[in-house]
Simulated assay, not measured.
Amino acid sequence: MRLTEITYDSAQPVEGYGPGYFRIGGQVLEGACLISPWSAGPWGGLGDTEAPLALAGRIDVLFVGTGGDVAHVPPDFRAALEEAGIGVEVMASPAACRTYNVLLSEGRRVAIALLPV
């Protein structure tokens, strides 16, 4: 079997997570966070569409990690992002982290909004 090292260029993948935190680029972020190839910082949760909407035109898909289990996002949250041309994919936060990292390594235009596990 041949293993290939994954490179992310200047983008920062999710390196790890645990109860209440995520580790990105060696930095620990506590609570909900929004991560794009350009930045990582706090996020106001499912009531905050302002921060993800600022990525319109720069990303195609926003993965939303809803914590340890999959949950529905509020319809107005999804509608606002889709109206701005951002696809929304909802999954548990661990799966969202893995999916984001894989697509980021492929150079895809993705971001991730995470609620802690």
Score class of each variant (00 low, 15 high):
79 A>Q: 10
78 R>V: 04
57 G>D: 11
75 P>F: 08
69 D>R: 08
73 V>Y: 01
66 T>N: 03
51 A>S: 11
69 D>T: 04
78 R>H: 03
67 G>N: 09
56 A>E: 14
64 V>K: 03
76 D>V: 13
74 P>D: 10
76 D>I: 06
54 A>G: 13
71 A>W: 02
71 A>T: 04
50 E>M: 13
54 A>C: 06
48 D>E: 10
73 V>T: 12
66 T>P: 02
52 P>Q: 09
78 R>Q: 12
49 T>L: 02
70 V>H: 14
70 V>K: 14
60 D>W: 00
59 I>K: 08
79 A>W: 01
71 A>S: 07
73 V>M: 05
47 G>W: 11
54 A>Y: 02
72 H>V: 11
46 L>R: 14
70 V>I: 14
64 V>H: 00
66 T>Y: 10
69 D>A: 10
72 H>L: 13
50 E>I: 06
51 A>E: 08
79 A>F: 05
70 V>N: 04
68 G>F: 01
47 G>Y: 11
52 P>V: 12
66 T>C: 03
61 V>L: 13
69 D>S: 14
63 F>Q: 10
64 V>N: 03
50 E>F: 13
59 I>C: 09
66 T>A: 09
75 P>G: 14
55 L>M: 08
63 F>C: 06
74 P>G: 08
70 V>S: 11
60 D>N: 08
76 D>R: 09
55 L>D: 04
78 R>I: 00
72 H>R: 02
60 D>G: 06
54 A>R: 12
74 P>S: 10
62 L>S: 06
59 I>P: 10
68 G>H: 13
49 T>F: 00
47 G>D: 15
47 G>Q: 15
48 D>M: 06
70 V>A: 13
53 L>F: 02
48 D>P: 11
72 H>S: 12
77 F>V: 02
63 F>H: 06
49 T>N: 03
58 R>Y: 02
60 D>Q: 07
47 G>E: 14
79 A>L: 04
75 P>T: 07
66 T>R: 03
52 P>M: 07
52 P>W: 05
77 F>H: 09
56 A>H: 13
52 P>K: 07
66 T>E: 10
47 G>I: 15
54 A>T: 04
69 D>Q: 09
67 G>K: 11
48 D>Q: 03
55 L>C: 07
79 A>H: 10
62 L>P: 04
55 L>Q: 07
76 D>A: 14
59 I>V: 13
67 G>H: 10
